[in-house]
Simulated scan of single mutants.
Amino acid sequence: MERVTMADVAKEAGVSKSTVSQYLNKRYEYMGEKTRTRIKEAIERLDYQPNYIARSLKQKRTSMIGIIVANIMHRFSTEVSHAIEEYCYDSDIQAIVCNADDDPAKEKKYIEMLMAKQVDGLIIFPTAKNIDLYDQMIKSGYPVVFMDRKAGDLNLPRIVANNVESAYDAVDHFIKYGHRKISIITQELSTSPRAERVTGYKNCLQDHEIEYKDEYVINQPIEELQLELDRMFSLSQPPTALLAGNDLVFLEILRFMKRKSISVPEHFSLVVFDNIPFADVATPAVSTISQPAFEMGQKAAELLLKQIKKEDVELKEYQYPCDLVIRETSARQTD
Rank of each mutant, 00 (worst) to 15 (best):
residue 265 P to A: 11
residue 182 I to W: 00
residue 167 A to R: 03
residue 115 M to A: 12
residue 89 Y to G: 03
residue 214 D to K: 14
residue 41 E to M: 10
residue 194 R to D: 04
residue 248 L to S: 01
residue 220 Q to S: 13
residue 51 N to Y: 07
residue 176 K to A: 08
residue 266 E to D: 15
residue 58 K to T: 06
residue 199 T to P: 03
residue 243 L to M: 09
residue 130 N to R: 06
residue 148 D to N: 14
residue 229 L to A: 02
residue 326 I to K: 13
residue 53 I to S: 10
residue 247 D to W: 05
residue 240 T to I: 05
residue 87 Y to V: 04
residue 140 S to H: 14
residue 77 S to M: 11
residue 9 V to N: 02
residue 7 A to M: 10
residue 140 S to L: 13
residue 217 V to Y: 07
residue 309 K to C: 01
residue 272 V to R: 01
residue 87 Y to G: 04
residue 24 L to E: 04
residue 54 A to W: 00
residue 63 S to G: 05
residue 257 M to T: 11
residue 225 L to G: 05
residue 232 M to A: 01
residue 234 S to P: 08
residue 120 D to W: 09
residue 6 M to H: 03
residue 286 V to F: 10
residue 8 D to H: 04
residue 209 E to M: 05
residue 259 R to M: 14
residue 181 K to G: 03
residue 108 K to M: 09
residue 149 R to H: 13
residue 130 N to S: 03
residue 174 F to Y: 07
residue 290 S to Y: 13
residue 127 T to R: 01
residue 131 I to N: 03
residue 141 G to N: 06
residue 22 Q to K: 13
residue 76 F to W: 06
residue 303 L to E: 07
residue 257 M to E: 11
residue 154 L to R: 09
residue 52 Y to T: 11
residue 186 T to Y: 08
residue 102 D to T: 01
residue 98 C to K: 08
residue 282 A to C: 15
residue 332 R to E: 07
residue 154 L to F: 11
residue 71 N to Y: 11
residue 102 D to G: 02
residue 113 M to G: 06
residue 114 L to I: 13
residue 199 T to D: 12
residue 212 Y to K: 04
residue 291 Q to N: 05
residue 183 S to T: 01
residue 332 R to F: 00
residue 90 D to E: 15
residue 195 A to L: 12
residue 187 Q to A: 10
residue 65 I to H: 10
residue 191 T to P: 00
residue 200 G to V: 05
residue 301 A to F: 00
residue 175 I to V: 07
residue 103 D to F: 05
residue 66 G to C: 06
residue 27 R to K: 14
residue 165 E to T: 08
residue 313 V to E: 09
residue 224 E to A: 12
residue 305 L to V: 07
residue 313 V to D: 09
residue 161 A to M: 11
residue 218 I to H: 00
residue 77 S to H: 13
residue 318 Y to N: 03
residue 184 I to G: 01
residue 41 E to D: 15
residue 295 E to W: 04
residue 56 S to C: 10
residue 227 L to Q: 15
residue 221 P to Y: 11
residue 327 R to N: 11
residue 62 T to Q: 13
residue 127 T to E: 00
residue 331 A to W: 02
residue 111 I to D: 09
residue 132 D to M: 07
residue 162 N to M: 07
residue 196 E to S: 10
residue 176 K to L: 07
residue 65 I to Q: 09
residue 237 Q to W: 08
residue 126 P to H: 00
residue 184 I to E: 02
residue 204 C to Y: 08
residue 86 E to V: 03
residue 20 V to I: 06
residue 76 F to M: 03
residue 281 V to C: 15
residue 216 Y to V: 00
residue 303 L to S: 06
residue 98 C to G: 08
residue 26 K to F: 13
residue 90 D to N: 14
residue 307 Q to C: 07
residue 63 S to H: 15
residue 138 I to R: 09
residue 169 D to I: 04
residue 105 A to Y: 11
residue 48 Y to N: 02
residue 18 S to L: 08
residue 287 S to T: 15
residue 14 G to S: 09
residue 91 S to K: 15
residue 88 C to N: 10
residue 154 L to K: 08
residue 190 S to Q: 10
residue 81 S to W: 00
residue 253 I to Q: 02
residue 67 I to Q: 04
residue 96 I to N: 00
residue 115 M to I: 15
residue 266 E to Y: 14
residue 272 V to D: 02
residue 271 V to S: 08
residue 252 E to F: 05
residue 301 A to W: 00
residue 29 E to D: 12
residue 240 T to N: 13
residue 289 I to L: 14
residue 328 E to M: 14
